[in-house]
Simulated scan of single mutants.
Amino acid sequence: MELKDFPGLYQASDKASLDSQSTYKNIIAFDLITMIIAASLAVYNYQSIQPKLITYTISGLFLLIGLILTLIIRTKKYEDIWYQGRALAESCKTLTWRFITCSESFEIALEDEKAKEVFVKRIKDLSSEFKDLNENLNAKVITLPVVTDKMMEIRRLNMLERKQYYVKNRIEDQRNWYAEKAEFNKLRYNRWFILIISCQAISLICVAFLIKYPGSNWNLVGFFTTVSASALSWLQLKQHQELKQAYTTAAQELNFILVSFGRVNTEEKLSEFVLDSENAISREHTLWCAQRR
């Protein structure tokens, strides 16, 4: 399903989470860059007073900018909005897939209006649970329909059609996403780790140079150690290695669940199949939250 086919609360919380994630990471990146620039300005020891004053002033400005960015991160709490927004969005998405596949709590035996009533109540409960997030949700988006036409269209398909739709658009789509993200995070982790090791090695070389030439006006040790520390901080923020493991595990679990696809030939088995799949996806999200915290 496309984004517009999901409830307004899902769309609003997903957008709030993505926007806060982007803002949070951008501020962190700018903060680290300001420290690297400040360190780069100290690589040469000027002999005259005027260049020194100019260098110290510029360094001070960049350090001040870094301090302001750090305070913004502390006060705005973009990270909390990011986590809560994703938690709410994932909960809404799980409920939506259970609703359209006539899974537990939304069985095919329920009339459409009754099923919609139960679904709306569950969405309302989620909204109350994450009420602190409301002020960060887009008012225009959150007021979009709770139950969309596409949701009802899929719900009214026969059991075989719903099963095929769910496998293609939920399980296979999510499994492929996990697999791609696992490989992406593996490559990024290796690249950042190489950068960190390289900077630390160059720092040692610079120290050896200063030992041999103690009178040199060039000192690159502080610059490369700052780059190394910044890269390490960024690596810890992105958590590429942890995400790679979590995504790989989730992809494998969904792959195992797909094995039972052929045995799903009744509404009850479809409901069980959907619940197993959604629980596997929920476990990945739970692990993601635990790693972030």
Rank of each mutant, 00 (worst) to 15 (best):
S128H: 14
S128C: 05
S128E: 14
E129W: 04
E129M: 05
E129T: 02
F130A: 11
K131Y: 00
D132T: 13
D132M: 13
D132V: 14
L133I: 10
N134F: 11
N134H: 08
N134S: 10
E135V: 07
E135G: 06
N136Y: 10
N136H: 15
N136T: 13
L137V: 09
L137F: 01
N138G: 15
N138W: 02
A139C: 07
K140V: 03
K140W: 05
K140G: 12
K140N: 15
K140F: 08
V141H: 08
I142H: 06
T143M: 05
L144G: 10
L144V: 06
L144C: 11
P145Y: 11
V146C: 03
V146G: 00
V146L: 00
V147Q: 12
V147N: 13
V147C: 07
T148K: 11
T148D: 09
T148Y: 11
D149H: 12
D149W: 07
K150T: 07
M151W: 06
M151S: 03
M152W: 09
M152R: 02
M152V: 08
E153H: 03
E153D: 14
R155Q: 11
R155A: 07
R156C: 01
R156S: 12
R156M: 07
L157C: 03
N158D: 09
N158T: 00
N158K: 10
N158P: 03
N158S: 06
M159F: 01
M159R: 05
M159I: 01
M159E: 08
E161M: 01
E161S: 08
E161D: 10
E161T: 08
E161F: 00
R162S: 02
R162K: 15
R162W: 04
K163M: 00
K163E: 01
K163Q: 03
K163H: 04
K163N: 04
Q164V: 09
Q164G: 15
